[in-house]
Amino acid sequence: MTAPLDLEYIRRAPKVLLHDHLDGGLRPATVAELAAECGYTGLPVEAPDELAQWFREAADSGSLELYLETFAHTVAVMQTPAGLRRVARECAEDLAHDGVVYAEVRFAPEQHLEGGLSLDEVVDHVLEGFLEGEASARAAGREIRVGCLLTAMRHAARSREIAELAVRFRYRGVVGFDIAGAEAGYPPSRHLDAFEYMRNCNAHFTIHAGEAFGLPSIHEAIAFCGTDRLGHGVRITDDIAVGADGHVTMGLLANYVRDKRIPLELCPSSNVQTGAVASLDDHPFGLLARLRFRVTVNTDNRLMSDTSMSREMLVLVNTFGFGWSDLERFTINAMKSAFIPFDQRLAVIDDIIKPGFAVLIG
Protein backbone atom coordinates (compact mmCIF):
# COMPACT_ATOMS: atom_id res chain seq x y z
CA MET A 1 0.00 0.00 0.00
CA THR A 2 1.07 3.58 -0.62
CA ALA A 3 2.16 5.35 2.55
CA PRO A 4 0.16 8.42 3.60
CA LEU A 5 1.73 11.73 2.62
CA ASP A 6 2.15 13.13 6.11
CA LEU A 7 5.12 14.48 8.00
CA GLU A 8 5.90 11.19 9.72
CA TYR A 9 6.24 9.26 6.47
CA ILE A 10 7.95 12.07 4.57
CA ARG A 11 10.65 12.00 7.27
CA ARG A 12 11.26 8.36 6.34
CA ALA A 13 11.91 9.22 2.70
CA PRO A 14 15.56 9.60 1.62
CA LYS A 15 16.17 13.26 0.86
CA VAL A 16 18.86 15.32 -0.86
CA LEU A 17 19.59 18.90 0.14
CA LEU A 18 21.65 21.27 -2.03
CA HIS A 19 20.97 24.70 -0.52
CA ASP A 20 21.38 24.99 3.24
CA HIS A 21 23.35 27.65 5.11
CA LEU A 22 25.37 26.47 8.11
CA ASP A 23 24.92 29.76 9.93
CA GLY A 24 21.19 29.65 9.23
CA GLY A 25 20.54 26.24 10.76
CA LEU A 26 21.69 26.39 14.36
CA ARG A 27 19.61 24.92 17.15
CA PRO A 28 18.18 27.77 19.25
CA ALA A 29 19.61 26.22 22.42
CA THR A 30 23.03 26.06 20.79
CA VAL A 31 22.89 29.76 19.93
CA ALA A 32 22.14 30.60 23.57
CA GLU A 33 24.79 28.25 24.98
CA LEU A 34 27.54 29.35 22.61
CA ALA A 35 26.70 33.00 23.29
CA ALA A 36 27.18 32.39 27.01
CA GLU A 37 30.44 30.53 26.40
CA CYS A 38 32.01 33.18 24.17
CA GLY A 39 30.62 36.20 26.02
CA TYR A 40 28.36 37.44 23.26
CA THR A 41 25.73 39.71 24.81
CA GLY A 42 23.86 40.82 21.70
CA LEU A 43 21.08 38.22 21.68
CA PRO A 44 17.60 39.81 21.74
CA VAL A 45 16.33 37.07 24.09
CA GLU A 46 18.07 34.13 25.76
CA ALA A 47 15.51 31.38 26.35
CA PRO A 48 15.74 28.86 23.44
CA ASP A 49 11.98 28.81 22.78
CA GLU A 50 11.80 32.60 22.73
CA LEU A 51 14.94 32.75 20.60
CA ALA A 52 13.44 30.37 18.04
CA GLN A 53 10.33 32.53 17.83
CA TRP A 54 12.40 35.72 17.54
CA PHE A 55 14.43 34.38 14.60
CA ARG A 56 11.30 33.28 12.78
CA GLU A 57 9.49 36.57 13.30
CA ALA A 58 12.53 38.71 12.51
CA ALA A 59 13.08 36.80 9.27
CA ASP A 60 9.47 37.36 8.19
CA SER A 61 10.33 40.81 6.91
CA GLY A 62 9.58 40.45 3.22
CA SER A 63 13.02 41.88 2.49
CA LEU A 64 16.20 39.97 1.74
CA GLU A 65 18.34 42.73 3.26
CA LEU A 66 16.41 42.70 6.57
CA TYR A 67 16.28 38.89 6.53
CA LEU A 68 20.07 38.78 6.32
CA GLU A 69 20.44 40.94 9.43
CA THR A 70 19.37 38.01 11.63
CA PHE A 71 22.63 36.25 10.79
CA ALA A 72 24.64 38.72 12.87
CA HIS A 73 23.70 36.68 15.96
CA THR A 74 24.49 33.23 14.61
CA VAL A 75 27.77 34.28 13.03
CA ALA A 76 28.79 35.95 16.30
CA VAL A 77 28.73 32.62 18.15
CA MET A 78 30.65 30.78 15.41
CA GLN A 79 34.08 32.37 15.94
CA THR A 80 35.84 29.62 17.91
CA PRO A 81 37.07 26.13 16.96
CA ALA A 82 34.65 24.52 19.41
CA GLY A 83 31.73 26.62 18.20
CA LEU A 84 32.36 25.86 14.54
CA ARG A 85 32.77 22.13 15.14
CA ARG A 86 29.66 21.94 17.29
CA VAL A 87 27.45 23.78 14.81
CA ALA A 88 28.69 21.60 11.93
CA ARG A 89 28.30 18.39 13.94
CA GLU A 90 24.76 19.25 14.98
CA CYS A 91 23.89 20.26 11.42
CA ALA A 92 24.81 16.79 10.13
CA GLU A 93 22.96 15.12 13.00
CA ASP A 94 19.79 17.17 12.50
CA LEU A 95 19.72 16.60 8.75
CA ALA A 96 20.26 12.86 9.17
CA HIS A 97 17.47 12.72 11.76
CA ASP A 98 15.18 14.27 9.14
CA GLY A 99 16.04 11.59 6.58
CA VAL A 100 18.57 13.57 4.52
CA VAL A 101 21.09 11.15 3.01
CA TYR A 102 23.18 13.68 1.09
CA ALA A 103 23.57 17.39 1.79
CA GLU A 104 25.66 20.27 0.54
CA VAL A 105 25.93 22.83 3.32
CA ARG A 106 27.43 26.24 2.63
CA PHE A 107 29.03 28.93 4.75
CA ALA A 108 31.30 31.97 4.32
CA PRO A 109 34.70 31.40 5.97
CA GLU A 110 35.50 35.11 5.76
CA GLN A 111 32.79 35.78 8.37
CA HIS A 112 34.43 33.62 11.04
CA LEU A 113 37.80 35.29 11.55
CA GLU A 114 37.04 37.52 14.54
CA GLY A 115 38.52 35.01 16.99
CA GLY A 116 41.88 35.01 15.26
CA LEU A 117 41.43 31.90 13.13
CA SER A 118 42.79 31.75 9.60
CA LEU A 119 40.58 30.86 6.65
CA ASP A 120 42.15 27.41 6.45
CA GLU A 121 41.61 26.81 10.16
CA VAL A 122 37.96 27.83 9.90
CA VAL A 123 37.37 25.33 7.09
CA ASP A 124 39.28 22.62 8.94
CA HIS A 125 37.11 22.95 12.04
CA VAL A 126 33.85 22.93 10.07
CA LEU A 127 34.88 19.85 8.09
CA GLU A 128 35.87 18.10 11.32
CA GLY A 129 32.43 18.89 12.70
CA PHE A 130 30.70 17.44 9.65
CA LEU A 131 32.72 14.21 9.99
CA GLU A 132 31.81 14.00 13.67
CA GLY A 133 28.16 14.50 12.81
CA GLU A 134 28.25 11.83 10.12
CA ALA A 135 29.80 9.40 12.62
CA SER A 136 27.25 10.30 15.28
CA ALA A 137 24.39 9.77 12.82
CA ARG A 138 25.86 6.45 11.72
CA ALA A 139 26.03 5.28 15.34
CA ALA A 140 22.32 6.12 15.59
CA GLY A 141 21.56 4.02 12.51
CA ARG A 142 21.33 6.85 9.97
CA GLU A 143 23.67 7.39 7.04
CA ILE A 144 24.41 10.86 5.71
CA ARG A 145 27.16 12.40 3.60
CA VAL A 146 27.77 16.12 3.92
CA GLY A 147 29.67 18.09 1.30
CA CYS A 148 30.73 21.66 2.01
CA LEU A 149 30.32 24.70 -0.23
CA LEU A 150 32.52 27.70 0.53
CA THR A 151 30.70 30.99 0.05
CA ALA A 152 32.14 34.41 -0.73
CA MET A 153 30.12 37.49 0.22
CA ARG A 154 29.15 39.36 -2.91
CA HIS A 155 29.53 42.80 -1.29
CA ALA A 156 33.13 42.04 -0.28
CA ALA A 157 36.30 41.60 -2.34
CA ARG A 158 37.55 38.18 -1.25
CA SER A 159 35.83 35.95 -3.80
CA ARG A 160 39.02 34.92 -5.62
CA GLU A 161 40.65 34.10 -2.29
CA ILE A 162 37.65 31.98 -1.23
CA ALA A 163 37.59 30.25 -4.62
CA GLU A 164 41.23 29.29 -4.15
CA LEU A 165 40.36 28.05 -0.67
CA ALA A 166 37.59 25.86 -2.11
CA VAL A 167 39.97 24.30 -4.62
CA ARG A 168 42.61 23.79 -1.94
CA PHE A 169 40.14 21.77 0.14
CA ARG A 170 38.38 19.99 -2.72
CA TYR A 171 39.64 16.53 -1.71
CA ARG A 172 38.98 17.07 1.99
CA GLY A 173 35.22 17.63 1.97
CA VAL A 174 34.69 20.88 0.07
CA VAL A 175 32.70 20.16 -3.09
CA GLY A 176 32.16 23.64 -4.52
CA PHE A 177 32.00 27.43 -4.33
CA ASP A 178 29.21 30.00 -4.07
CA ILE A 179 28.58 33.72 -3.71
CA ALA A 180 25.80 35.04 -1.48
CA GLY A 181 24.46 38.21 0.11
CA ALA A 182 22.30 41.06 -1.10
CA GLU A 183 21.83 40.81 -4.87
CA ALA A 184 20.79 44.37 -5.73
CA GLY A 185 23.87 46.40 -6.60
CA TYR A 186 26.19 43.41 -6.41
CA PRO A 187 25.86 41.50 -9.69
CA PRO A 188 27.62 38.15 -10.16
CA SER A 189 29.87 39.64 -12.84
CA ARG A 190 31.75 41.57 -10.12
CA HIS A 191 33.33 38.23 -9.24
CA LEU A 192 34.30 37.00 -12.69
CA ASP A 193 37.88 36.41 -11.60
CA ALA A 194 36.73 33.87 -9.03
CA PHE A 195 34.46 32.05 -11.44
CA GLU A 196 37.11 31.95 -14.14
CA TYR A 197 39.51 30.46 -11.60
CA MET A 198 36.96 27.77 -10.67
CA ARG A 199 36.38 26.89 -14.32
CA ASN A 200 40.13 26.75 -15.00
CA CYS A 201 40.45 24.31 -12.10
CA ASN A 202 37.52 22.19 -13.36
CA ALA A 203 35.72 22.94 -10.09
CA HIS A 204 32.01 23.28 -9.40
CA PHE A 205 30.12 26.38 -8.29
CA THR A 206 26.64 27.72 -7.76
CA ILE A 207 25.51 31.35 -7.59
CA HIS A 208 22.74 32.99 -5.58
CA ALA A 209 20.75 34.59 -8.38
CA GLY A 210 17.15 35.36 -9.19
CA GLU A 211 15.97 35.70 -5.59
CA ALA A 212 15.73 39.39 -4.71
CA PHE A 213 16.79 40.51 -8.18
CA GLY A 214 15.34 39.42 -11.50
CA LEU A 215 16.38 38.15 -14.89
CA PRO A 216 19.60 40.21 -15.26
CA SER A 217 21.05 38.43 -12.23
CA ILE A 218 20.16 35.02 -13.67
CA HIS A 219 21.47 35.94 -17.11
CA GLU A 220 24.82 37.12 -15.75
CA ALA A 221 25.20 34.04 -13.56
CA ILE A 222 24.74 31.79 -16.58
CA ALA A 223 26.09 33.70 -19.59
CA PHE A 224 29.01 35.56 -18.01
CA CYS A 225 29.93 33.40 -15.02
CA GLY A 226 29.04 29.91 -16.24
CA THR A 227 27.31 28.72 -13.08
CA ASP A 228 26.48 25.05 -12.65
CA ARG A 229 23.36 25.75 -10.60
CA LEU A 230 21.14 28.68 -9.63
CA GLY A 231 20.78 29.42 -5.93
CA HIS A 232 17.01 30.05 -5.80
CA GLY A 233 16.48 31.20 -9.40
CA VAL A 234 12.84 31.72 -8.55
CA ARG A 235 12.62 34.89 -10.66
CA ILE A 236 13.08 32.88 -13.86
CA THR A 237 9.29 33.12 -13.96
CA ASP A 238 9.73 36.76 -15.02
CA ASP A 239 10.49 35.19 -18.40
CA ILE A 240 7.41 32.94 -18.40
CA ALA A 241 3.89 34.11 -19.29
CA VAL A 242 0.77 32.09 -18.54
CA GLY A 243 -2.30 33.13 -20.51
CA ALA A 244 -5.87 33.16 -19.25
CA ASP A 245 -6.42 29.89 -21.11
CA GLY A 246 -3.41 28.32 -19.41
CA HIS A 247 -1.16 28.53 -22.45
CA VAL A 248 2.48 29.01 -21.43
CA THR A 249 4.94 31.18 -23.36
CA MET A 250 8.59 31.11 -22.36
CA GLY A 251 11.29 33.60 -23.27
CA LEU A 252 14.80 32.80 -24.46
CA LEU A 253 16.37 32.73 -20.98
CA ALA A 254 13.70 30.48 -19.47
CA ASN A 255 13.98 28.11 -22.43
CA TYR A 256 17.76 28.06 -22.07
CA VAL A 257 17.61 27.25 -18.35
CA ARG A 258 15.19 24.41 -18.99
CA ASP A 259 16.95 23.08 -22.09
CA LYS A 260 20.35 23.06 -20.39
CA ARG A 261 18.85 21.38 -17.30
CA ILE A 262 20.32 24.06 -15.04
CA PRO A 263 19.22 23.10 -11.52
CA LEU A 264 17.07 25.52 -9.54
CA GLU A 265 17.76 25.44 -5.79
CA LEU A 266 14.26 26.48 -4.73
CA CYS A 267 13.52 27.23 -1.07
CA PRO A 268 9.74 27.70 -0.69
CA SER A 269 9.41 28.99 2.88
CA SER A 270 12.47 31.23 2.64
CA ASN A 271 11.36 32.65 -0.71
CA VAL A 272 8.19 33.91 0.97
CA GLN A 273 10.07 35.35 3.94
CA THR A 274 12.45 37.34 1.75
CA GLY A 275 9.68 38.64 -0.49
CA ALA A 276 10.88 36.74 -3.57
CA VAL A 277 7.29 35.49 -3.84
CA ALA A 278 4.15 36.84 -2.20
CA SER A 279 2.91 33.59 -0.65
CA LEU A 280 3.28 29.84 -0.87
CA ASP A 281 0.24 29.71 -3.13
CA ASP A 282 2.02 32.13 -5.45
CA HIS A 283 5.29 30.19 -5.43
CA PRO A 284 6.24 29.12 -8.97
CA PHE A 285 7.45 25.70 -7.85
CA GLY A 286 4.28 24.10 -9.15
CA LEU A 287 4.53 25.79 -12.54
CA LEU A 288 8.25 25.09 -12.91
CA ALA A 289 7.77 21.45 -11.95
CA ARG A 290 4.92 21.09 -14.47
CA LEU A 291 7.10 22.63 -17.18
CA ARG A 292 9.84 20.13 -16.28
CA PHE A 293 12.52 22.52 -15.14
CA ARG A 294 15.09 20.77 -12.97
CA VAL A 295 13.56 21.87 -9.67
CA THR A 296 14.98 20.84 -6.30
CA VAL A 297 13.58 21.27 -2.78
CA ASN A 298 15.73 23.05 -0.20
CA THR A 299 15.61 24.59 3.27
CA ASP A 300 17.91 27.63 2.89
CA ASN A 301 17.94 28.52 6.61
CA ARG A 302 16.30 26.04 8.92
CA LEU A 303 16.49 28.27 12.00
CA MET A 304 15.09 31.41 10.37
CA SER A 305 12.31 29.52 8.60
CA ASP A 306 11.69 27.07 11.47
CA THR A 307 11.75 24.32 8.86
CA SER A 308 13.29 21.07 7.67
CA MET A 309 13.44 19.21 4.40
CA SER A 310 10.44 17.14 5.43
CA ARG A 311 8.42 20.24 6.26
CA GLU A 312 9.36 21.89 2.95
CA MET A 313 8.20 18.79 1.09
CA LEU A 314 4.95 18.69 3.06
CA VAL A 315 4.36 22.37 2.22
CA LEU A 316 4.68 21.51 -1.48
CA VAL A 317 2.38 18.51 -1.12
CA ASN A 318 -0.29 20.59 0.62
CA THR A 319 0.06 23.56 -1.74
CA PHE A 320 0.34 21.85 -5.11
CA GLY A 321 -0.98 18.35 -4.53
CA PHE A 322 2.28 16.56 -5.29
CA GLY A 323 2.49 12.81 -4.70
CA TRP A 324 5.27 10.41 -3.75
CA SER A 325 6.43 10.05 -7.35
CA ASP A 326 6.83 13.83 -7.57
CA LEU A 327 8.89 13.96 -4.37
CA GLU A 328 11.04 11.15 -5.73
CA ARG A 329 11.59 13.08 -8.96
CA PHE A 330 12.62 16.23 -7.09
CA THR A 331 15.01 14.18 -4.95
CA ILE A 332 16.60 12.53 -7.98
CA ASN A 333 16.84 15.96 -9.62
CA ALA A 334 18.86 17.12 -6.63
CA MET A 335 21.13 14.10 -6.57
CA LYS A 336 21.80 14.41 -10.29
CA SER A 337 22.84 18.01 -9.63
CA ALA A 338 25.15 17.36 -6.68
CA PHE A 339 28.82 18.34 -6.87
CA ILE A 340 30.28 14.87 -6.34
CA PRO A 341 31.46 12.42 -9.03
CA PHE A 342 28.87 10.88 -11.34
CA ASP A 343 29.35 7.30 -10.17
CA GLN A 344 28.81 8.36 -6.57
CA ARG A 345 25.65 10.28 -7.46
CA LEU A 346 24.35 7.28 -9.38
CA ALA A 347 25.03 4.97 -6.46
CA VAL A 348 22.95 7.14 -4.12
CA ILE A 349 20.10 7.26 -6.65
CA ASP A 350 20.09 3.52 -7.38
CA ASP A 351 20.98 2.15 -3.96
CA ILE A 352 19.27 4.58 -1.59
CA ILE A 353 16.75 6.95 -3.18
CA LYS A 354 14.86 4.60 -5.51
CA PRO A 355 14.60 1.73 -2.98
CA GLY A 356 13.59 4.16 -0.24
CA PHE A 357 10.77 5.66 -2.24
CA ALA A 358 9.69 2.26 -3.57
CA VAL A 359 8.79 1.26 -0.02
CA LEU A 360 6.66 4.38 0.41
CA ILE A 361 5.02 4.30 -3.01
CA GLY A 362 4.10 0.63 -2.59
Rank of each mutant, 00 (worst) to 15 (best):
L288R: 05
V348N: 01
A47S: 13
H73K: 14
E183D: 07
L327Y: 00
D193G: 14
A88K: 01
F339Q: 02
V122L: 05
L64A: 07
N200D: 15
A244K: 13
I222R: 06
R258N: 08
R142M: 15
R329P: 00
I240G: 04
E183S: 10
A276Y: 03
A52N: 12
V248W: 08
V75D: 10
L113S: 04
A166E: 01
F357W: 11
I179Y: 04
D343Y: 08
A139D: 13
I10S: 06
G39P: 11
Y67K: 06
E211F: 07
T319E: 09
M335L: 14
Q111K: 11
V277M: 07
P188H: 10
R172K: 10
E132H: 08
H208C: 14
C201F: 11
A88H: 00
M335S: 02
C225D: 09
G42L: 14
L113I: 07
P341F: 03
T237M: 11
D238L: 09
T299N: 12
S159I: 00
G210K: 05
G39F: 12
L291A: 06
V242N: 06
V105I: 15
L64G: 06
L51G: 06
M304F: 04
E46C: 13
E134V: 07
R142T: 12
S310F: 03
H219Y: 14
D49K: 12
S118F: 03
G147N: 06
L266D: 07
Y171I: 01
P44C: 13
R172M: 05
I353K: 02
R11A: 12
T237C: 10
N255F: 09
A209L: 08
F213Q: 10
G231L: 05
T151Q: 03
V45N: 04
L253T: 12
V272P: 01
G185L: 12
R12F: 07
D282T: 13
V167A: 06
D306F: 07
E46W: 14
A135C: 10
A166W: 04
Y171E: 15
L264W: 00
R27N: 09
P4V: 00
A194K: 00
G286H: 03
C91P: 01
M153A: 02
V123W: 06
R190E: 11
L66K: 10
H155F: 13
T2R: 15
R85I: 07
H247L: 15
A32R: 01
R292G: 08
V146K: 09
R311G: 03
E164C: 03
T249F: 14
V257S: 04
L119T: 02
